[in-house]
Amino acid sequence: MSAPALADEAAEALADGTTVAELRADKRVRRRRATLPYVLLAPGIIWLVVFFIVPMWSIVSTSVETGDMDTGFVLSWRWANFGDVWSQWHQQIIRSLEYSLMCTVFCLILALPLAYFIAFKAGRWKNLLMALVVAPFFTSYLIRTLAWKTILADDGWVVHAMNTLHITPLLSGMGWTYSDNSVLQTPFSVVCGMVYNFLPFTVLPIYTAMEKIDPRLHEAGQDLYASAWATFRKVTFPLALPGIVGGTLLTFIPAVGDYTNAVMLGGPKTKVIGTVIEQQMIGTGGNIPYGAALSVLLMVGTLVITLAYIKRAGTEEIV
């Protein structure tokens, strides 16, 4: 320590009557206190670096590489990769967004009454019903999706019933299926599979939000001569909104990247962007930078849509 600094310290010590030694001990404590937050934060920061920043960097840097599988890929900052993949696969990107949007809407239509019923009308059956909503998770996702191939088989009773009720010609008239007596390997079967697989993700947050609503608010609505619909619109819905926004996001975001349903229940015309990415990354496409560029595009696209949605839905609690 230099002489002037020592003098300063001594003067400081004299000023409030403590010894130099005490002052030094005090500084050490203060220094330790200053580093403590970083030590405590370290696990979180390491986690973030390892599982977020590094993979992010990896995927972004890979997306601007060039080369091929046999000679290797080199980082050449070729941003044109993004233009390439967009012009080649924008159809599949748009299709993925369409399917996941449809899936989210159908999930919401099914989940709202279901969650409402469980939260307010199920009484002592509440827990059992919630267990039933979650029960499918005990079986593998792939097996459940494959099961739909059996359920919707051309010779199965579901398709026979749909034929008898003239639903199949209606669907093919709308362009959701391709023939009058089958539904598999069409956009319809893909969206069906997605709705089935993602429904619990929509129901759970909505149920949690609704369950917290005080039933006396409903009674208050009735006391004030509000109709059942008005009570739902003015009381239940706004209070359940955070759950609705959460549930739709939990459905939409993974649905955009899902390709299991499209591969198993779809046909040549239902290829989604997840399949393209899989083929480019580890499959027959073999162009890893293109796969990475598509992943980045999809990520940014989903983020923009999500932010716009949250802004519009106006629930800051989510973000």
Partner: peptide, 24 residues
């Protein structure tokens, strides 16, 4: 060299192709 350290599985794949270049 890729600055990976403890990367995720996807990264391992990416690195494998990078080294593929020199080793082949």
């Amino acid at each position: 060299a890729a600055g990976v350290g403890l990367g995720a599985a996807g990264l391992l794949g990416a690195c494998a192709t990078k080294t593929a270049h020199s080793s082949a």
